[in-house]
Design a protein around this nucleic acid. Sequence first.
DNA 1: CAGCGAATCTTTCCACTGCCAAGATGCGCG
DNA 2: CGCGCATCTTGGCAGTGGAAAGATTCGCTG
Lengths: 184, 184
Amino acid sequence: MTRFVGMSPYHHGDLRRAVLDAAVAAITEHGPAGISLRDLARRAGVSHAGPVHHFGDKAGVLTALAAEGFDLLADALAAESDRGFVEVGVAYVRFAIEHRAHFEVMFRPELHREDDAPLAAARDRAGALLTSGASSVSDDAMAGVAAWSLMHGFANLWLTGALRAELLEDPDTAARAIARILFP
Amino acid sequence: MTRFVGMSPYHHGDLRRAVLDAAVAAITEHGPAGISLRDLARRAGVSHAGPVHHFGDKAGVLTALAAEGFDLLADALAAESDRGFVEVGVAYVRFAIEHRAHFEVMFRPELHREDDAPLAAARDRAGALLTSGASSVSDDAMAGVAAWSLMHGFANLWLTGALRAELLEDPDTAARAIARILFP
DNA sequence: CAGCGAATCTTTCCACTGCCAAGATGCGCG
DNA sequence: CGCGCATCTTGGCAGTGGAAAGATTCGCTG
């Protein structure tokens, strides 16, 4: 929308980044299903077909956003990896809440291009970081899956508002308490 | 679509049921975000504005579907409630997979009418059934939330395909193994 | 520094969608 | 029998995703 003075109407500068930022804002307001590619283009200050060249179609935008989300998540988990599983789990929940727009797109495969390589790579990296911390605590092959399920479920239930009635405190301490039940 | 011979084009018979069934089929095929009210009307064999009288708008259809889903879930949980929490948790996961279309709509508040009374009632009934079984095992106030988070997270991860690489067996036994880690 | 190919963005168009308004139909109750 | 109301249809409007074709500028090559 705001274009620098003297800048030509062509060649936005970094339209790809601008569209992704607009998508984050729009999804935060209306949810992943309530966004429109044309609105993202308007927010970025280009015509409605501008983003096509960078993303192909609407699924391309959401796929790029999901891949970016998995990378951000992997970074957040790696930063806590040496503090034990509980803190990694708390970081997972914190990421889901602080980057809600990313998180809500990441686990909706019907919104993605299935065969996207960057997405698959980023997703595997984040998944390995979470389950590895848990399997070091217990040698049960299922422990990693249980750990991921626990924190993923808590994050989802929190985001959908299903838990707010019983948990008035902040999600960080609640998530920590949950994680400690599984890994005392 | 298929209308009984001799039936007049007006007064479908049970259009409300037909639209909900069509919605289940459409969501199973294309996900909750990929359905169109006009397509549901076509599948039910009525004009594109037929469903309006029964549901108001698109959110009305999805709200009714979510309420129906929470009722079905509560029934499924109640049927296992005397066999202990582990089996209740397994039933939760089994419901999510067998009634995938319902489940995917139930936890997407942005698709609902927020103030729908039947939805709220059905949701509270199902939530109480799940957490009560868990809090009877442990007196920790967080145990119920942890139990719900664990099974909800596992169901979600399974449905999105994030776990299929490491779990070739059927989800029932995997869910049972997960639940036993939290409640041995 | 000229100019040419490629990248980037715009304009135009079509089928489809959600929703609203107005009209048509037939069920059930007096 | 006929009248009111629930049910369904038709028609219309603004907005959307995507394809096609054109306009503009970048950057590389000579």
